[in-house]
Amino acid sequence: MMVGSLISFPRDVTTENSVRTGLMSSAISVSNLHKTYDSGFEALKNINLDIHHGEIFALLGPNGAGKTTLISTICGIVNPTSGTILADGHDIQKEYRAARTKIGLVPQELTTDAFETVWNTVSFSRGLFGKSSNPAHIEKILKELSLWDKKDNKIITLSGGMKRRVMIAKALSHEPEILFLDEPTAGVDVELRRDMWNVVRALRESGVTIILTTHYIEEAEQMADRIGVINKGEIILVEEKSELMRSLGKKQLRLQLQEERKAVPEALAKYGLELTPTGCELIYSYDAHKDKTGIASLLKDLDKAGIGFNDIQTKQSSLEEIFVNLVRERK
């Protein structure tokens, strides 16, 4: 946010927090958040996290890491044990009305009314969030999500993917500034997934902040501006995606061999090469940011050993690999 906007717009001075954090107010600001469930299980351990305005933030982590717990706590569905959460500068407990008005949530579980029509349930959500009815807006959302021709259908008659879209439509019905998508593409076919990405991108274009969780790493890789990794209730990393890819990204050099081999030649042991199960391909992993990648000497040594190759290829490691490595390191 620009300093100018703070000066020219009189802001609600009673909201102490929004003034304190006003200058660089984050869309979501979580500090020292702990959550221990009644069962005694500590699901969130001292979470500190800031989500910037207008970004797409992907929260990654294995099953049971605490992603849903974190989102549910921010949205007011789970009581925090301790800690503070601000949504656009508003404390989610003391100023829950201001905070919640800004937030839309698409939960992980498919939970919708069964017997209501699509149109009614989406309109209901808008009213619930305190907005006066606006059929034109609902129509626009339903059309964007390809639900328009289903608007008079009862939800129980829709397929799972369509129900997911109904839940997104509900969350968008009240024009939220911050949108949480808890695994929006779980159990969704490729086409619908692409549609959703387009919707998410369009929302970001219009200034909506988006926080999503996903197990499809390529989704985060393609969509996110920043990535946070959570494991066992702790945020273990928050990084710009491009930065993360660069700093942690190992590159691979793949060599298509002329002849099949049974094992990596002794002479090349120091390179830590991997032979694919077919025996046709040698893989060399290196760090692209080191001064000496070792490629030149590897090629020389290959030549010396008399190993010929037809093709050569380099590949950036995917976020998935990075992520798996990160979680493994912590164990």
Partner: peptide, 14 residues
């Protein structure tokens, strides 16, 4: 029972 209560709990209603 159905879980749709999430919406009520996350809405700006007292």
């Amino acid at each position: 029972f159905t879980g749709t209560i999430y919406e009520l709990l996350s809405a700006p209603v007292s």
